[in-house]
Amino acid sequence: MAYSEKVVELNERPVNMGTLDKADPNVGTGLVGAPACGDVMRLQLRIGDDGIIQDAKFKTFGCGSAIASSALVTEWVKGMTVDQALAISNRDVARELALPPVKIHCSVLAEDAIKAAIADFKKKREERAGKAAVAQTNP
């Protein structure tokens, strides 16, 4: 099965591949896996206090379509608000990459990874807010 041009391009030039500091309170990490193939994808977003995504990195162990899907969404989300990023659907990814039906799960993985990363970021922020509230009541 031949990969689409866009998939090949993103595999040859995997921009945004790498890691962000997991401990950074502004970094959300999403880690997802595909039960159909046993591949794993990690997506990390650095989100400013204004809710704008400043940076995005990915690390994917999987087929070319999975790598391309994660690379593509890291390109897309930079500069987006959290809500805009949450609106990205796997169908957008599959369409852009012209994924065949057997590779749709790769785009599902990328969508899930964005959602997981944002959920992680929100959890961190709530924990921070909780601690700040506790610190305020117990000076």
């Binding site: 896996g33 595909a34 039960p35 159909a36 794993v40 162990f61 799960h105 599902v108 959602k115 997981a116």
Partner: peptide
């Protein structure tokens, strides 16, 4: 588990996926 459109959310515990990621790295 073979379903191509299967969602990845909530399927495996996060700790396990972290371990797999570390192994692959």
């Amino acid at each position: 588990l073979e379903r191509e459109d299967g969602s990845s959310r909530g399927s495996m515990p996060l700790a396990f996926l972290e371990e797999v990621m570390a192994l692959r790295e």
